[in-house]
């Protein structure tokens, strides 16, 4: 039962982790949790189903604003507003999917890019600034169960931990199922996949649906963690950041996306001492990681695993 033991140890570590850390670090860990969901969402779409998207920030924005507005304007509870935000984002994912049906990779990239630009331009328009708050954005209420409000960094961390773990398990289930296999089949050999009965339209739709759901939830989670949301957060830069998390972690690997998301969430904070050097080091880090780990951090780990027998003993195969 080595796999269960490792998972139990990891779980325990995540539970006691915040006690050794500063409040701000705990908060950044929670933000990393939201980024993990966004990265996993993009990886299922891009790494598994082979559909490149550089407009994921738009889904984050839709999820975040929806959850916030459902709570503040319609008075829904967090537990209703939060999943609904994911579902509504899923629906927009399906709309984006319509052009994707016919388009090759590069063309889909521009379509998603356009979608990202459109959402970021639409939100601050004066016509609905009474609701969306224009460029300043809006305040987002804290999550709440009954009368218990999650408002310290520690409380929010545990809430995030539960949400992220549950959604990771669900994503893992999909990735390891016949649906995940159909994604990969369509990505690698579309003709063979179709000849075996895989309906490309349906599975691409699934990929967009799942990806948009996870990203919408990530956006909602981030909005509730920060307590505020504004259109400036959702530019091209954010989409590219999520893209980079997936690539750095290793495309097609969910554990890789988790590592990539945590790494890129913390990197700016580690480099913040460097001030002006920061952007430069961030860029250099991206280049160097790809040069030395062409298949991402996870691919690098797997290579070590196969090269050193000691590691195989420590983590038996199939674990």
């Amino acid at each position: 039962m080595p796999r269960q033991i490792w998972l139990a140890l990891l779980g325990l570590l995540l539970i006691i982790l915040p006690f050794g850390l500063k409040g701000y670090t705990v908060y950044i860990l929670s933000i990393a949790g939201a980024n993990i969901l966004a990265a996993v969402g993009l990886n299922l779409l891009m790494g598994y189903a082979g559909q490149v998207s550089i407009g994921q920030a738009a889904f984050l924005a839709i999820g975040g604003y929806t959850s916030a507005l459902l709570m503040t304007k319609l008075g829904l509870s967090f537990w209703l507003a939060f999943p609904l935000a994911g579902m509504l984002t899923s629906l927009t994912g399906l709309i984006l999917f319509i052009p994707a049906l016919r388009l090759g990779t590069i063309y889909l990239a521009i379509a998603t890019l356009g979608f990202g630009a459109a959402v970021q331009q639409l939100i601050p328009l004066p016509y609905w600034s009474a609701i969306l708050g224009g460029h300043q954005g809006i305040r987002v209420p804290r999550p709440q169960i009954g009368s218990f409000v999650f408002d310290t960094d520690l409380e929010l961390y545990y809430l995030t931990l539960v949400i992220v773990v549950v959604l990771l398990v669900l994503s893992w289930n999909v990735a390891r199922s016949y649906i995940g296999r159909a994604f990969i089949a369509l990505r690698d050999k579309p003709a063979a996949a179709e000849a075996l009965g895989i309906n490309p339209t349906r599975y691409k739709a699934y990929a967009f649906l799942v990806s948009a759901f996870l990203t919408g939830i990530a956006g909602a989670l981030q909005a509730h963690l920060v307590g505020h949301i504004s259109p400036g957060e959702f530019g091209l830069g954010k989409s590219i950041e999520i893209f980079a998390m997936v690539i750095l972690g290793g495309i097609g690997s969910l554990p890789g996306s988790v590592l990539g998301a945590v790494f890129l969430t913390f990197l700016p904070h580690w480099l913040s001492e460097a001030r002006l050097l920061y952007t430069f080091l961030y860029g250099a880090a991206l280049v160097l990681v790809i040069i030395f780990m062409p298949y991402g951090v996870w691919g690098f780990f797997l290579r070590l695993y196969y090269r050193f027998p000691a590691m195989q003993k420590l983590f038996p195969k199939g674990a």
Binding site: R181, I184, A185, A193, I198, V210
Partner: peptide, 27 residues
Amino acid sequence: LFPYMTVLENLMIGEHRDFGGSLLSVA
């Protein structure tokens, strides 16, 4: 064949049309 899948996974793609679980039940 799908090169980045195992033999077993490839064979299970052959059984694709015998799978019917909904996205939700799978997740």
